[in-house]
Each structure stands twice: as C-alpha cells, then as structure tokens.
C-alpha cells in the first residue's frame, strides 16, 4: 500500500490537465450513468499521468467545479482514460449534458491504488455492487491483460446491480463470462422477463459462491448497505481483516491532503485512501 503519489514536485497540483471527451457511452437503463472516454490534449501530460487500478482523479469543468471520480480504465489500455459518472449534482449533470469533443480537465492521479503487490501470487476475489464497479473494472482489465495475468492466481468476480438494465459494461461482462481466466458471477436484485441469470443480493451470492480464503484477497466496492452485509460473509469465509480491501468515497476538494475535509480519523481518504483494508477500518472511527 506504499505506492508513492507520482505527482511531480514542480507542477502546480491544483491545475488540471486538459482532455477531450472522445466518446460518451450510456451505461444503464436509467440513463444516469455515462462513461466518458477522455483523451489528453498534450502527449507529455498523458505521460506524466501514470496511474494504477484503484486510483481516482478530479474531473474538472471550469465554471462548475471539480468532482473526485474513480478511474475506470486500466493503465494497460493506452491512449485514453475512462470515467463512469453518475448524474447527481451540478458538475456531474453538466458532464452528462456534454457533447463529444468538449474539452474538460483531469487532475490526478490521486490516492493509493489497490494493493497490487499484496495481490500478486494470490487468488483475487472481486466483489462489486452497483455503479461502484468502476475501479474494479480497471482492476479486472489490468489482471486480464496478457502481460499481467500470470502474476495473479484464480480470479473470481461477483458483481450485482439492482436490475438487469443497471449492470454496467455489458459487452465486457459477456466477454468475461466466456473467458476462462476469470470466474464471473453476475447477479441482479430482481430480474425482468428477459433475465435468465442469477437473482439475489451480492452478499447472498457471495455466500453461495463461497470463494476460498486460502491464499486469497478480496476487493470490495459498493454502496454502504452492501458493504455492511458483505464484510460478515467474508469474515465467515475466513478472510483475514487485512485481506479484505475496500474503496471508500468522501466529499473532497483538493485531493492532496490539504483542504481538510475527507478525513476518517487520522487518515485522509484522498491521499491515505481511498483504498483501505477492513483491518484499518476497524481501527478508525465509523465516520464515513
């Protein structure tokens, strides 16, 4: 977890890199999740934006503000960044109303990535719910990349959404279901007439799939209610608290541990997180 923030010492850390929205993909039936494919305007900016799965960046629209969003692309995908944005507030609504070709800003990468060094040589269990699946998509893409796959053992993924229409990255999910390199378990809270897949909440499905905790690490990302019920299942499956890894969200501004608002106890989610182990969370106040 000791990955250094790759930000340069000379660069003004508050000034975003200019990027162009190259493509906008609507991800869900509710149409409130869009994936923005961003391309750097300057080659040197792209080269200095060296990131790993689990990190985030501030998306910046001058006149509207900034918003911290997990990076959904993997560093193994070259030439662009992906961010899946839910329409919630002023900035995210403005992003949703964007047209392709618009210039916006990206500031980062920020935060600590998933503990790839700890994950190496281990079975990786990925548990995701709803639109929090973004940095887990990054992780899966990263692991499945030919140059990385042998660094990790068996990969199991449990991913759930409220309804079939709310599942994100549908084309990729299909690919992954057919890929022997990953064991996919996709579920929805409630299916519709055309749904032939699994129904049930993520913690329940996790219990049914029951991945072994032996030489394994679990990455968990989802809404608070899912986290609440997922941790006990993982503990019951014998996952050690330090082998349960979770990514948290918090209101942020600076993203570099100075503006003082995103702390949980003595840690700042922006620079010490957003990735925490369950062990760390146990020792922190439940102020998140």
């Amino acid at each position: 977890m000791k990955t250094e923030n790759p930000q340069s010492t000379i660069r003004n850390p508050y000034i975003p890199y200019p990027v162009r929205i190259d493509k906008i993909t609507i991800e869900n039936a509710d149409r409130d999740l869009k994936t923005l494919k961003l391309v750097f305007l300057n080659k040197e900016d792209e080269e200095s934006f060296q990131y790993l799965p689990g990190q985030f960046a501030e998306l910046s629209v001058f006149g509207k503000g900034e918003s911290p969003i997990g990076i959904a692309s993997s560093p193994t995908e070259q030439g662009f960044l992906l961010f899946t944005v839910k329409r919630v507030g002023v900035l995210t609504s403005d992003l949703h109303d964007s047209e392709e070709g618009r210039i916006i800003g990206v500031r980062g990468p920020l935060g600590k990535p998933y503990p790839l060094d700890v994950m190496e040589g281990k079975n990786v269990v990925i548990v995701g719910g709803g639109f929090a699946f973004t940095t887990l998509r990054s992780t899966i893409r990263y692991i499945l990349a030919p140059q990385n796959r042998s660094r990790f053992e068996k990969v199991t993924c449990i991913y759930g959404a409220r309804s079939p229409g709310e599942l994100m990255y549908k084309e990729e999910l299909k690919e992954w279901e057919a890929n022997p390199d990953i064991d996919m378990h996709i579920t929805v809270d409630k299916g519709d007439e055309s749904w032939t897949g699994r129904e049930g909440f993520v913690p329940t499905v996790l219990k049914q799939v029951a991945p072994s905790a032996d030489n394994a690490i679990a990455l968990v990302c989802g809404p608070p209610i899912m986290l609440k019920f997922t941790f006990p299942v993982l503990l019951e499956l014998d996952f050690a608290p330090e082998m349960i890894v979770v990514s948290l969200e918090m209101r942020m501004k600076c993203g570099i541990g100075k503006c003082g608002r995103c702390n949980i106890g003595n840690t700042y989610v922006c620079k010490d997180g957003p990735v925490y182990t369950y062990r760390q969370l146990q020792s922190l106040p439940a102020e998140y």
Binding site: Y14, F62, K64, G65, E66, K253, K258, C259, G260
Partner: peptide, 18 residues
C-alpha cells in the same frame, strides 16, 4: 487551514477560487 474550492463565472470569463 481547511479550505473550499469554488468556481465563479461572469459571462465567458471565470476564476477558480479557494
């Protein structure tokens, strides 16, 4: 030392403030 960052605009021009 806690601070906020906000944008202000007037017509086409604006500034990002802390």
């Amino acid at each position: 030392h806690c601070f906020d960052v906000t944008d202000e605009t007037l017509h086409e021009n604006g500034r990002r403030l802390r």
